[in-house]
Amino acid sequence: MSLHAGLEPGDGLDFEFSIHRVPAESIDGLEASVLWATEGKGSEDIGVHYFERLSGTQLSQRPLQEPRMLSTKLPLCPLSYEGRLMKIRWCVRLRLFLKGGREISAEQPFYLGHVTREV
């Protein structure tokens, strides 16, 4: 997974990923999402900005190790935020569903906007 860590609202997000060390025949599907979630003392709020599901068949059309690109235009808000009671975190999340009910997930956080600095 790779992308620039700091992005501005309204920017395009190009996101590249590849799958290694997982046999293609064991994959049931993959979900890629760009989302924000709150973190802190309150219950978690979540907002999914982009979502795409690829089936095992779609994934197996090309070698898994080959980089795949997902693109989306980022929204104007909510911006990343580092508060005291709550933080707003943006990330790209990949969820790989394996046959037999197992799943592997990976997250790549990024910072949307420049309102608060990392603390």
Binding site: E39, G40, K41, G42, S43, E44, E82, K87, R89, P109, Y111, E118, V119
Partner: peptide
């Protein structure tokens, strides 16, 4: 972007 280890999600 460190998380507070005692945030609700944990």
């Amino acid at each position: 972007m460190k998380s507070n280890p005692l945030a609700t999600r944990f």
